[in-house]
């Protein structure tokens, strides 16, 4: 977390700000900057986001890019996941507004090459983080794109750690291979996803159509845990690969401590 500035963000702000991280001259980027902040007398963090994304995202999400980008905070000690997109209030539900199957524009209409979007939010109030002190791995997530995680330490008394998290039944242990150092890794083999990590970790999924972030958190039993799962059923409830019509697509990543795997895309017919 950057030092010094302590901006107060009672509400999210949109458009480039002085504290918004600068985008590179060329290419696509999803960048966040975090500043210590105070919100309603409570220690918090101000998250400034800058993004330049490919035209395809503009074709899909149009002017609702802030609503498509997820701000994710993973409690590194518990694996608990908090997330919310960059919009506030009750906008038209993005799943109802987005164009999941963009087509090339008709003759006479200029195609979009790229789009830039900026916003800043107060992390604690926007994500509804609990009042206890904690360390969070914070990153931005737009489908295949993901930012570098930033560690945000929020001061305060730490909540007592609960008992060891049970191992999720949907994760089959002791299969596959992974990095010997236990850094989180995720890859798709056939119809199954292979994971490898260590310590307390969270498996996260972002459903393309419902825009919902799903997660399951647990702790490794072995020094380096290797497991596999069926991505179609790894998360329960509505909003996971259940769109009435294709595309039915999801994005998955694995977070452990201060590390995060690459995003893996999974799609079903």
């Amino acid at each position: 977390m950057s030092a010094n500035p302590t901006p107060t963000l009672a509400n999210p702000v949109y458009g480039p700000q002085d504290l918004s991280p600068a985008l590179p001259d060329d290419g696509y980027a999803l960048i966040l900057a975090v500043y210590p902040a105070v919100n309603e007398g409570r220690s918090s963090a101000a998250v400034y986001m800058s993004a330049r994304v490919a035209g395809k995202y503009a074709d899909i999400y149009g002017g609702r890019l802030a609503g498509a980008i997820q701000i994710v905070a993973v409690d590194v000690e518990r694996g608990v996941v908090y997330s919310r997109n960059g919009e506030r209030g009750k906008p038209v539900p993005l799943p109802l507004a987005m164009n999941p199957n963009p087509q090339p524009p008709p003759k006479g209409v200029a195609p979009v090459e790229s789009a830039e979007v900026y916003f800043a939010v107060d992390l604690v109030s926007h994500l509804g983080l609990p009042p206890q002190g904690a360390a969070y791995s914070v990153f931005l997530w737009l489908d295949e794109m993901v930012s570098q995680p930033r560690i945000v330490e929020l001061p305060g008394e730490r909540a007592n750690l609960t008992a060891t998290l049970p191992w999720p039944t949907m994760l089959e242990r002791n299969v596959g291979a992974g990095p010997p150092d236990g850094s989180p890794e995720l890859k798709l083999e056939g119809s199954r996803m292979l994971g490898s990590t260590s310590g307390i970790f969270a498996l996260l999924g972002l459903d393309f159509r419902s825009r919902e972030v799903k997660s399951v958190s647990t702790s490794s039993v072995a020094a380096v845990e290797r497991f596999s799962f069926d991505p179609r059923s790894v998360f329960r409830g509505p909003g996971w690969l259940d769109a009435k019509e294709p595309p039915r697509r999801a994005f998955l990543t694995l977070c452990a401590g201060r590390q995060r795997s690459a995003v893996v895309t999974f799609e079903v017919a």
Partner: peptide, 20 residues
Amino acid sequence: WDPAPLTQTFSCGNGNDTIS
């Protein structure tokens, strides 16, 4: 709510002179 500047780059010319 939340009116904000949005910057997009378009490939115009060559008859594609409408931004939709």
